[in-house]
């Protein structure tokens, strides 16, 4: 049986819609399940209590604060370093240079390295060699390494998407490279950079393996006060609860997942807001 072009077209369209619907359905089922199980446990006490052996008194406060600290620190380290690296590679080096090419190739490869390997690296370098112990800063540095490649690569893409005509227009007004890069190219690339930031931070917030590696604890009864304090994070706490035999802890784990999703969502909203603010001057 042969199909006409328009039949093929609608068949293709239908398949795409079906696939989209299936993934959405899976998501909805998953969310429903979590909501159903966790909603009963979700209240202010849950947010404001430390973990406990008794489910009725257990809360997520230390993990929530730990995650917020880790996210904040990671963003503060990885975004500037990643963006500056990309700026340097794109705007200050000659793209045809073979060393630059080698560096770029390696950065893209790093993006595919499993997170546990970064955990191992963090344990060796930050925790042991630099003597940071099981601290927030060791965790944040490890996660920064993990997400740096993605930030660098997406930022490079965003910088490359800024037309050269903008650069030349700026130079023709007597601008120096510094002004061109920081006054024109970088602002024009921010929407694209934010996309990379959203992607990578979303990855970082859900990571547990590398943080367990560098010593995130599963039972922390205090909130961290400084970057040298020990910590735990939401995924580690959730994992810990899931592993307990009592039914009630599974409900707590589901509630923890809801909190994790809420944090992720809030973070993305902020990033999208920044992106839109800069997008205003793009196509119109």
């Amino acid at each position: 049986m042969s199909l006409s072009r328009s039949q093929k077209n609608s068949l293709f369209k239908f398949s795409c819609q079906a696939v989209t619907a299936i993934s959405l359905l899976v998501l909805v089922v998953l969310l429903y399940h979590i909501m159903k199980e966790g909603f009963a446990y979700l209240n202010f006490d849950f947010l404001n209590h430390f973990p406990s052996r008794r489910p009725s008194r257990a809360g997520i406060k230390s993990a929530l604060f730990g995650s917020l600290w880790i996210m904040g620190l990671t963003a503060m380290i990885a975004i500037p370093v990643g963006v500056c690296t990309a700026l340097f590679l794109e705007e200050y080096t000659n793209r045809k240079n073979k060393w630059v090419k080698l560096v770029e190739l390696n950065i893209s490869n790093l993006a595919g390295v499993p997170s546990i390997v970064y955990g191992l690296l963090g344990l060796t370098v930050f925790v042991r060699f630099l003597g940071m112990d099981r601290s927030l800063i060791a965790g944040a540095l490890t996660l920064s390494l993990l997400i740096l490649p993605v930030i660098v690569v997406t930022t490079q893409g965003a910088l490359r998407a800024v037309p050269d005509a903008i650069r030349y227009g700026a130079y023709a007004l007597g601008a120096r490279r510094y002004h061109v890069v920081f006054g024109q190219v970088l602002p024009a690339a921010i929407p694209g950079i934010m996309t990379g930031v959203i992607l990578s931070m979303s990855r970082a917030i859900g990571e547990s393996a590398p943080l367990i590696m560098v010593g995130a604890l599963s039972f922390v009864a205090f909130t961290p006060e400084s970057i040298t304090d020990p910590f735990t994070v939401l995924p580690v706490q959730i994992y810990n609860w899931v592993g307990r035999p009592q039914e009630a802890f599974h409900g707590l784990a589901a509630a923890g997942i809801i909190v994790l999703l809420a944090v992720l969502f809030t973070f993305n909203i902020i990033a999208v807001f920044i992106r839109e603010k800069f997008q205003r001057y793009k196509n119109d």
Binding site: P163, A165, Y168, G169, A170, Q184, A188, Y281, K282
Partner: peptide, 8 residues
Amino acid sequence: FQRPNPFP
């Protein structure tokens, strides 16, 4: 320039 190139 040949093509208008206003800044974004």
